[in-house]
Simulated scan of single mutants.
Amino acid sequence: MADTSQKMVKRLNTTLPDPLALYVGEMTGKGSLYETPSEFIRDLVRRHMERTLEHESKDIRAMLVQSVQENDYSDWTDTDLADARKAAVE
């Protein structure tokens, strides 16, 4: 999720090139999917945030699966424990 120490943006003002402005105009207004351009933009941001979180979750799951597949989970030997203790002290 986003770093909360960053500046929060509550208002955005932007200029769109004509093709994008036409598209937003088609997507908003009476009888359209979105009542206002702001509603349309909020939905786009929400969807982007959801996709980003979903991709992050998939990446984490993939790393966990890879870790389980690559690691040897046999019992530790006395040498393994001694090496771990030594590393912890250093």
Results as ranks from 00 to 15, higher is better:
residue 40 F to Q: 01
residue 10 K to Y: 11
residue 79 T to P: 02
residue 24 V to K: 05
residue 73 Y to N: 12
residue 84 A to K: 10
residue 74 S to F: 07
residue 27 M to L: 13
residue 66 Q to W: 13
residue 57 S to W: 02
residue 66 Q to C: 08
residue 29 G to M: 08
residue 10 K to C: 00
residue 77 T to V: 02
residue 89 V to W: 11
residue 20 L to S: 01
residue 27 M to P: 04
residue 54 E to A: 14
residue 43 D to S: 09
residue 54 E to F: 13
residue 40 F to G: 00
residue 52 T to Q: 15
residue 60 I to T: 13
residue 62 A to F: 14
residue 56 E to Y: 01
residue 52 T to I: 08
residue 25 G to R: 01
residue 40 F to P: 00
residue 20 L to C: 11
residue 10 K to G: 09
residue 67 S to N: 10
residue 8 M to N: 02
residue 61 R to P: 00
residue 32 S to N: 06
residue 9 V to W: 00
residue 15 T to Q: 08
residue 9 V to Q: 10
residue 63 M to F: 09
residue 28 T to F: 08
residue 3 D to E: 10
residue 8 M to L: 13
residue 5 S to E: 13
residue 64 L to C: 10
residue 58 K to F: 01
residue 89 V to Q: 15
residue 28 T to D: 05
residue 62 A to Q: 13
residue 23 Y to G: 02
residue 65 V to K: 09
residue 83 D to G: 01
residue 65 V to W: 00
residue 69 Q to E: 15
residue 18 D to R: 14
residue 72 D to N: 12
residue 76 W to G: 01
residue 78 D to M: 07
residue 51 R to G: 02
residue 49 M to Y: 11
residue 57 S to T: 14
residue 11 R to W: 04
residue 22 L to P: 00
residue 54 E to L: 09
residue 66 Q to T: 14
residue 25 G to E: 02
residue 74 S to P: 06
residue 31 G to A: 03
residue 12 L to Q: 00
residue 6 Q to W: 03
residue 56 E to V: 13
residue 85 R to V: 15
residue 36 T to C: 06
residue 50 E to V: 15
residue 16 L to S: 01
residue 71 N to T: 04
residue 51 R to Q: 13
residue 25 G to V: 05
residue 3 D to F: 00
residue 49 M to S: 13
residue 81 L to Q: 12
residue 38 S to F: 04
residue 22 L to S: 02
residue 57 S to Q: 15
residue 9 V to N: 04
residue 9 V to L: 12
residue 8 M to T: 06
residue 79 T to C: 07
residue 1 M to K: 12
residue 50 E to F: 00
residue 16 L to E: 01
residue 34 Y to P: 03
residue 57 S to L: 10
residue 53 L to Q: 15
residue 78 D to C: 04
residue 29 G to F: 12
residue 38 S to N: 14
residue 19 P to C: 03
residue 41 I to V: 15
residue 38 S to D: 04
residue 33 L to H: 05
residue 71 N to Q: 04
residue 19 P to W: 09
residue 90 E to T: 15
residue 57 S to R: 15
residue 32 S to Q: 08
residue 10 K to R: 11
residue 74 S to Y: 09
residue 42 R to V: 06
residue 18 D to H: 10
residue 32 S to P: 04
residue 5 S to G: 09
residue 48 H to A: 12
residue 82 A to V: 07
residue 68 V to F: 12
residue 8 M to G: 00
residue 67 S to R: 13
residue 43 D to K: 07
residue 10 K to T: 13
residue 77 T to C: 02
residue 64 L to R: 04
residue 28 T to S: 10
residue 74 S to G: 10
residue 71 N to E: 05
residue 52 T to H: 14
residue 13 N to V: 13
residue 32 S to E: 03
residue 44 L to E: 03
residue 58 K to M: 07
residue 17 P to G: 04
residue 60 I to Y: 02
residue 88 A to F: 12
residue 35 E to L: 10
residue 86 K to P: 03
residue 20 L to R: 00
residue 6 Q to T: 10
residue 12 L to Y: 07
residue 55 H to L: 11
residue 85 R to E: 09
residue 68 V to M: 12
residue 62 A to G: 06
residue 65 V to G: 02
residue 10 K to Q: 11
residue 21 A to G: 04
residue 26 E to A: 11
